[in-house]
Design a protein around this nucleic acid. Structure first.
Lengths: 226, 226, 226, 226
DNA sequence: AATGAATGAGTGTTCATTCAT
DNA sequence: CATGAATGAACACTCATTCAT
């Protein structure tokens, strides 16, 4: 329960005014459905008819509201990534030890991604496809910002003598995010292996064990000296 | 040069007889083209027309040879994953220290995946889609086998007192593989960030710096004591 | 300058009350835009969206004002052909020699059609389509009236012994109008051929050379004896 | 009967090898249907469904055979205009008086256009639309060639002192063709007016009276001196 | 054994029109 | 009175697949 709340707080706030398109309830409904279907079946594997059926709206509404299927994807990405950046940035101004900041950062990352599985899946599936290199700009900016935040924290730890210096900082994010993604991509495999039969068990495992594993891994990498 | 050879040796041997379907040159040609296109544009984003055009074969050949587009994907997976398992298994019988075995294992993993980028991308993109949970069996067996090999090595290190014991072994593979995948999925991002303008530079970075980063990370995780 | 004025005088007077529909400024605006677009791209090739965009009105206005796209076309034809008939009729009561009357008639015809290129194009393109045989009534009446006027003049000339008698009067109008239309339908061809680079040059050519050619042709036909 | 034969002889020979696309029977069937429908309802007013229904072929065949609806139109134009030029050219080498040549030319023109009503309607309707200026090239060349033939004949007549010299030759074609077109465009009007109830009567009127009217007109224009 | 021809189902999109406000 | 939102039908076109040869 507590965790669920935590997640909701971190999830993107609905109906917030967006820079590009106004979002009424029906648009949001379409976006939510699209996120789920794109995430489940991929962009090309999802037809506008699918979306309209699940969202219980007329077929023509998607083109009417978003212009095209492609633009729907763009709107979806903008909508869902709108407030992703902020929390990481705020972290570096908190009064915490570098290691605690890193642990916190990992927790935020995993929690945030896990709450937004759908869109992150889309981001990874569709944006890395050569066809759609274009919509990548927003996502790239997000990654750059996050990397800068991470660098600030690690440099702080390095100058305090806590973190070792022979590490490649840009490769730390792949380790954090990649561990989560690889785990989640192989969800059925790990559900069977680790006996995580229900969604709740699976989610709890991510929030507890997996998060802890990643924190432990990053800590070891940053602190351990040969 | 040396590395390229190494890679070629590890890559799946062409024309090897397969259990299910006989592969003549034309079938292989189709499979190779399919791998590239599926990897670039996804399964749904690739049409049989695309494949037949690139493979310079008749459009009806794909259905004729493989039965359907879906079955082409299955054949592709079987074809490309056929000899993936063997080398990891042989590792545990080599006369090496546990840590060296781990380092070797990471190297083999990354090298193998990197040589087979295309099919791994397909495996991650298409097999994790709900639509195609079915073809997963082969892949699952592979993962289980690899996990057993890893466990053997780590248990050896643990019983020798070299590796710590409070680690979750099944989560180590996600860290190894996930780091690579996340890096590769964001190829354009890292190419710009790390100034890896050419394919050669990019590949060398993976084989040197990225592999070393993962080895360093896993080592730290296994060896470091709080 | 003089000719331009002349043209304006002959053009349909705006805001005149019509029998069937009242025309406010917005309706007229729509009609004018519709004429241009129908003329340029055809009836089927023009969408209500096009019209509403160019006329800067709401998309629903067209259906609201005119009932349907089809009825808009009808309204357009009625609106634009409303005062076409009058001037020809008045001609026969003027105190002129038959040949001068014919010359005058040709001039009026060509000038009038040229001033109303748009609607005449629509009349020829869309009304001759089997789909829309129905709206033809107005146009037919117009043609009948004009033919009667022409007959009166020619009969006058024939009874005066000026015009030959072995001519088929109803075929004279096709020669007059057809020459103009065929010229105008091949506008780009003749603009290149006759070096009529600007709109002004093109219009002047019609008002001078083309009109004279038609007058010369009709005169020869009427007067020449084998 | 005789006239029908004459027409058939002049009409484009089917199944003749074409430069660009091979035409099998089904393609020709589609082209014939397309010609009729485009002629009746315009290009935009005709849907691929219409064509496929009338030609009793699958909807997909049109795109399959011709690539697109637009390209179908192009193929149609090329197919139907392929052999239009030749006959006019051959005329100037015949041993005839200039006036007879002109009469012959008018007869050929009218006969040819009348036999190919459908395509000429398309040529005039669709090619003069701004949208499709592109496919015009073939047609333009045809017109230029025809104009040159006409000029040769008239110059011959002028140098022999038979034809007057104060005429604008390029405007003669509009008079010939335009008279026919305007007559045909107003087919229902003239059918009623001239009591041409059947198709045969209508066609005979064109071949006799209309042709004679045009010949008479052009002769008068060329020969008559003020 | 291999393929060109053909097809029905499905794609994303645009259409003219309606209707509640 | 006027309009933004919404809709079902139709659009051109592409899809994977089949089948006669």
């Amino acid at each position: 329960m507590f965790k669920l709340n935590k997640c909701l707080i971190l999830c993107p706030i609905r109906n917030t005014t967006m820079s590009q398109v106004e979002l009424n309830d029906k648009k949001i409904q379409i976006l939510e459905v699209a996120e789920k279907l794109f995430s489940d079946k991929g962009f090309e594997g999802t037809s506008i008819r699918d979306i309209s059926k699940h969202a219980k709206i007329n077929i023509a509404m998607v083109s009417y509201y978003f212009g095209s299927k492609e633009k729907l994807l763009e709107s979806l990405i903008i909508y869902k990534t709108a407030d992703l950046k902020l929390q990481i940035e705020s972290l570096q101004h908190q009064n915490l030890e570098p290691l605690d900041k890193i642990n916190k950062l990992v927790e935020i990352y995993i929690n945030r991604i896990n709450c937004n599985r759908g869109i992150f899946r889309v981001l990874h599936f569709e944006l890395t496809t050569k066809k759609r290199e274009h919509s990548l700009a927003v996502f790239t900016e997000l990654k750059k910002g996050n990397l800068r935040s991470l660098e600030t924290i690690i440099h702080e730890g390095q100058s305090k003598g806590i973190f070792r210096k022979d590490i490649i900082i840009p490769l730390i994010t792949p380790t954090i995010m990649g561990t989560y993604f690889h785990f989640h991509m192989n969800k059925p495999f790990f559900q069977e292996l680790l006996n995580l039969k229900t969604e709740t068990l699976y989610n709890d495992y991510i929030k507890d064990s997996l998060t802890k594993h990643i924190q432990q891994t990053i800590k070891a990498l940053l602190v351990y000296e040969n």
